[in-house]
Design a protein around this nucleic acid. Structure first.
Length: 216
DNA sequence: AACTCGGGGCA
DNA sequence: TGCCCAGAGTT
């Protein structure tokens, strides 16, 4: 496995690659962030950003979503896939926000994951981006990059990835690290065709080396 | 741990 | 055409 020191070096190199790396999901407040990130499950950030502006303009608050016709929400998010469950989750989520949390987005992980459609990953994004609470959200990019670099073993679970990153990276860097790894995974260490030939962290990457050997 | 949801993007 | 996408919920 990649050592703590080298993991930190790798993250710093990623920071140089994407100095502006931040959440690409459009959001103006914690509430919109919760909904937008929940909608992004198994969908691209690009496709989510296409539907959220109109959605939040029409339904800006939990109260508005609760009163909205389910059919209309479904129709407005139809292009992102999994839209039936997601539309129902939005309404149920908003209902719970009103009934159990006074209409405000809760600021602990235990409370956040109670919200329908909000799992550990979404909760961690909200904690980090909306409330500045240190957390590492492990999505497909973070998981893939961590495994290719052997920061964790190949068969590690999502939770094990999160724990390993928390152990190897200083707490005050958690949120930024998460964004940098996502950018790195999205634009460089791409799932199907990683750009190993031009990769700044190639020297640290076990999978990159074996992949290049295989090509010959 | 494995399975399902799902339309759109891209090769 | 086939594979995958800033996951969550259920079994």
């Amino acid at each position: 496995m990649l050592s703590k020191e080298k993991t930190l070096e790798v993250v710093n190199i990623m920071a140089e690659m994407f100095p502006e790396a931040e959440c690409e999901l459009t959001h103006r407040n914690p509430f919109e962030l919760v909904i937008a990130v929940a909608l992004s499950a198994q969908a691209t950030d690009v496709s989510v950003n296409k539907v959220t502006p109109a959605l939040f303009e029409k339904y800006p608050t939990p109260e508005a979503f609760v009163q909205a016709p389910l059919e209309d929400i479904m129709n407005m998010i139809k292009t992102i896939g999994l839209y039936r469950n997601k539309a129902k989750n939005i309404k149920a989520c908003c209902q719970m926000l009103i009934e159990d949390f006074g209409g405000e987005v809760p600021q602990t992980r235990e409370e956040l994951v109670k919200l329908p459609g909000v799992g550990r990953k979404t909760a961690n994004v909200v904690l980090g981006d909306a409330f500045n609470v240190p957390a590492i959200a492990v999505d497909t990019h973070v998981e893939r990059v961590s495994k290719r670099l052997r920061i964790v073993k190949q068969k590690a679970t999502v939770l094990e990835v999160e724990e390993a990153l928390m152990k190897k990276i200083p707490k005050d860097m958690w949120v930024k690290t998460h964004h940098r790894m996502i950018f790195f995974g999205r634009y460089h260490c791409i799932a199907r065709q990683p750009k190993c030939e031009t990769c700044p962290v190639f020297d640290y990457c076990q999978e990159g080396k074996s992949r290049l050997l295989k090509q010959k």
